[in-house]
């Protein structure tokens, strides 16, 4: 069964898809008088990679933090509990004075995984950092730190992984390594991956689906190709980034 997706999302609230593995329903988030999210609803299927894109201040990180259980929405609900969602913050949330293995072991214990050592070994193998297990995190490259950061998010084997701008501090080669890892994760473990990014090229390349947020509003949910097609006129001839900018422009952003 193909994933149920929100195609050609209309402005305003979107229909809740109950069969989705991850679902958000009518999320509203207010900070005082400022409204950061305005009735955002969407769902994502197992193994699907969803990119949340939009201009600065669109509400991307706020949406992700609500999905991760870091913040409670003013209105609306999320289908999953905190422990079912792996969270990978933008900056590596690791202890630089501890080794790779010690970081993984610490968080595995805090996550109360059944077999800590086996889990750590598995994550070391999965991240390709087994030979650097004893190295202090501070001595690793940004890319490798990010891999450990993601591995920590995956320690409890969550069905959903949330990544907040995971490649923002990485060079192009490290980005390739990262996305190969994330894609493999989605493909092989059927992990649902939702990530935010400013790099729309990355969203086009690695996401099955993109959600376009602007000013707290979900403007679009569909494949990158559908976003290009949604742009009026000669949208099909445009590259994805141009189509995205045009899309926002047409909707007054």
């Amino acid at each position: 069964m193909p994933p149920l997706r929100m195609r050609r999302a209309a402005v305003g609230s979107l229909p809740m898809v109950s069969t989705g593995l991850l679902a958000a329903d009518g999320i509203v988030m207010r900070f005082g008088r400022r409204t950061a999210l305005r009735g955002v609803s969407f769902s994502a299927e197992p193994g699907e990679i969803v990119a949340v894109i939009g201009p600065n201040g669109a509400g991307k990180t706020t949406l992700l933090s609500i999905l991760a259980g870091l913040q409670t929405p003013t209105e609306g609900r999320v289908s999953h509990g905190v422990r079912e969602v792996g969270w990978v913050p933008q900056q590596a949330a690791v202890y630089r004075k501890l080794s790779v293995a010690e970081n993984l072991r610490l968080f595995a214990r805090l996550e109360r995984v059944d077999d800590v050592d086996a889990t750590v070994m598995r994550m070391l193998a999965q991240t390709g950092l087994a030979d650097r297990a004893g190295d202090e995190l501070g001595a690793l490259s940004g890319g490798n730190q990010q891999r450990v950061n993601i591995a920590i998010g995956l320690l409890a084997g969550p069905p959903v992984l949330l990544l907040d701008e995971p490649s923002s501090s990485l060079d192009p080669r490290q980005r390739e390594v990262l996305w190969a890892f994330v894609s493999g994760l989605a493909r092989e473990s059927a992990t649902t991956v939702v990530f935010t990014t400013h790099n729309v090229g990355e969203a086009e390349r690695y996401a099955d689906r993109v959600l376009v947020l602007a000013d707290g509003e979900l403007l679009f949910g569909g494949t990158p190709a559908e976003l290009q097609a949604a742009v009026a006129g000669d949208g099909a001839d445009r590259d994805f980034e141009s189509a995205f900018v045009r899309f926002l422009h047409e909707r007054g952003h």
């Binding site: 991760a68 259980g69 870091l70 905190v82 969270w87 913050p89 900056q91 590596a92 949330a93 690791v94 202890y95 630089r96 968080f107 805090l110 920590i152």
Partner: peptide
């Protein structure tokens, strides 16, 4: 170390 958010989550 940005671990605070991860811990209190």
């Amino acid at each position: 170390e940005h671990a605070f958010g991860r811990l209190v989550r």
